[in-house]
């Protein structure tokens, strides 16, 4: 491992520059593939969306209260955060594969895998959002005679909502990507076409599954960005929207 490996040679620059253009040649074929398999396409797309939607809702229901709990019980915080950070280093692929023995094959397993990975962004943003509320504001609220619950409900949560929302945005966009892997555990979705297309080297099929998912992710991200701006966040894009 010490000597310089020959593979380190650069991919030729021209190839790099022109690579994305190859997609356009394939687009008409992919379009034909979609139109001639329309009902199947709708089914895959809808399954894909359902996977994201269900896992995301579950993740919100769990991660937001857990995040709030972490800020209420300072002693639990390192544990919760540590758990979250460790989970981040495990690739989605492994999580989904490892859910198999637990929940069996099918939609539920896929949702469970997506759910685990969707937790972290919402969890960390909930904690950060609540903790970022200025101490002075909280102190002023206490000084006015608000109880802890009132401080949380009237001050901290409203102020944290844009941040929590940003977490949900990151989490959902990652979810659209991760849902491609649902195919491996029989969860369906657009991954069915992409992964089978790759396997069979059927480019029309693979791209027919890839483009709509990419568009779905971009639309979702932009939609959330608009919503976030409306809620008062700064709507910056996250560094790690890609499912890993």
């Amino acid at each position: 491992m010490v000597s310089a490996p020959p593979e380190l040679a650069l991919v030729p620059l021209l190839e790099i520059a022109l690579a994305p253009l190859g997609i356009f040649e394939e687009l008409p074929g992919a379009y034909d593939f979609i139109t001639s398999n329309w009902s199947q396409f709708l089914h895959h797309l809808w399954t894909h969306i359902k996977l994201v939607l269900v896992s995301e809702l579950l993740a919100i229901l769990v991660a937001v209260p857990l995040g709030i709990a972490a800020t209420r019980f300072p002693r639990a915080k390192p544990t919760i955060k540590g758990f979250g950070n460790t989970a981040q280093t495990i690739p989605t692929l492994a999580i989904i594969f490892l859910m198999l023995p637990v929940t069996g094959i099918g939609f539920v397993t896929a949702v469970a895998g997506l759910f685990v990975y969707a937790l972290l962004p919402i969890l960390t943003n909930t904690i950060a959002g609540i903790e970022d509320v200025e101490d002075g504001v909280v102190e002023a609220a206490r000084g006015m005679g608000m109880t802890d619950t009132e401080v949380l409900r009237k001050i901290e949560l409203p102020k944290a909502i844009p941040v929590i929302f940003a977490g949900i945005r990151t989490s959902s966009v990652i979810g659209v990507g991760t849902a491609y892997l649902a195919f491996f555990v029989g969860g369906g979705g657009l991954g069915t076409w992409v992964l089978q297309g790759i396997k069979l080297y059927n480019m029309e099929m693979a791209i027919a599954g890839a483009v709509p998912g990419a568009l779905l992710a971009i639309t979702l991200d932009s939609g959330f960005a608009l919503l976030e701006r409306y809620l008062g966040g700064d709507a910056q894009q996250s560094d790690d929207l890609v499912s890993a």
């Binding site: 190859g22 599954g209 998912g213």
Partner: peptide, 17 residues
Amino acid sequence: MMTIPSVALFALLLPSL
């Protein structure tokens, strides 16, 4: 670029690379 799912991006780059 960041929002494009990795599986989709691999597939999109397949025809040319």
